[in-house]
Amino acid sequence: MHRPFYETHNRAILSVLLVTAFIWSLFSVEWGGNLFHDGGIVTILQIVKAMFNPDLSPRLLKLALVSSWRTLAYAVAGMTLAVIIAFLLGTLASGILVEGRWSRRFSAGLFRALLGFMRAVHELVWAWLFVAAAGLSPFAAIFALAIPYGGTLGRILADIINDVPPEPVRALRAAGAGRVQVLFYGYLPMAMADMVSYVMYRFECAIRSAAIMSFVGLGGLGYQIQISLADLKYNEVWTFIFFLIGLVVLVDLWSMRLRRGLVS
């Protein structure tokens, strides 16, 4: 069978296209010695040297521990709300709660668009808008985290629900279960394992996002990193970064163990 050139070589064509786009982007920078600050190279050497000599004094370790807890607490709070939002909007966006083809399509379209809008805007932009609108409050950071994360998790939940095999659900329907009962006894148990591992993955991301909420004035690891950087105390910067890495790795390990437990 003869197939057109672009069909048989689509991957090669795409690769060439991507490489060309990258080269095109490189032309926007004026390459040369003018890229670095005066003393920029010296600074980077200092920063790298400080990495092997982080500040481990008891005062700083205590501060780092407290800051880690604050970052973790905001990540957890944001994720709690995100999961609730995802559950409500995700089930609506899957369209299984309404009868009939057109109302189903309408429900799915409307709520999928809403979820798309929520996650299109980065959490820090949401945070900034909240702070500009209603002042600095812990809720500004929590809502800012919950909106895009709820959008992502909701989309995934809707996708997982739509992928649930129809036979068990039909059996439930035939046994006289209503829409909500089918959701709780048919769809959700089957979507659970996938959903949990995805929530754990997003939780790891939420820790990083909570850390950078320092940008709008929230305390925590990001805030301390920002202060130490401004004071040019690179040794302290690395201490806080290592704590952040530790936090992320701990969550990663937890989610790995949990995933393995769920699979078996």
Binding site: N34, L35, F36, R208, I212, Q226, L229, L244, V248
Partner: peptide
Amino acid sequence: AVPELVWAMIIIFVFK
């Protein structure tokens, strides 16, 4: 493990 924004804060010390 290090967020983009933190990398950017460090990098901006070096590049214009």
